[in-house]
């Protein structure tokens, strides 16, 4: 465990109000029409993930925003660009891993998931990007019980709602 926090005093933003979709579909909605997976849906999956070192969600810290998500349902492609709170954040890889794991667990397997750090927001941007999108390295990371425990802890709140 890190003895000192990397960003001891992060800026906390307000949560965006959840866009409420029709909770009860009106009777005339076509039973067979399909609702494609969209930006908001992906964002809903990710917004409640807890930051590894603060009791705030990634949404509150503006690590991810709805606009930073690119999704193409027909081509089964998602790209999430996230912004670490400080440039030298060593937690960036953990956050990226959380994002990837959450999407792996929430999306159908046909999707290709691309996780990136917003350009210019991190000191070792390329290295982190490479690490996050390397299948072997992600698999290896998930073999590490300590890492998995950490990731699960961060993901816990995002499953409860």
């Amino acid at each position: 465990m890190v003895s000192e926090l990397i960003n001891a005093n992060p800026v906390v933003y307000e949560k965006k109000e959840r866009r409420v979709r029709n909770s009860v579909p009106p009777a005339d909605v076509n039973e067979y029409s399909s609702e494609p997976i969209d930006q908001l849906e992906i964002f809903d999956h990710l917004r409640d993930i807890k930051d590894p070192e603060h009791p705030y969600s990634l949404e509150e810290l503006k690590v991810i925003t709805e606009d930073a998500i690119e999704v193409d349902d027909s081509n089964s492609y998602v790209r999430v660009t996230f912004t670490p709170t400080v440039e030298h954040c060593s937690m960036a890889t953990i956050i990226g891993l959380c994002l990837r794991v959450k999407l792996m667990r929430s999306l159908p397997p046909r999707f290709k998931i691309d996780i990136r750090i917003a350009p210019g927001s991190h000191a070792t941007e390329d290295a982190v990007n490479k690490q996050l999108n390397d299948k072997e390295r992600v698999a290896a990371a998930l073999e590490n019980p300590n890492l998995v425990e950490m990731v699960d802890e961060c993901l816990a709140p995002s499953f409860s709602c």
């Binding site: 609702e35 997976i37 849906e41 929430s106 159908p108 397997p109 046909r110």
Partner: peptide
């Protein structure tokens, strides 16, 4: 459940 993850309906 993988099939349900790819359901046409969001809910």
């Amino acid at each position: 459940i993988l099939k349900a993850l790819d359901d046409p309906k969001r809910r």
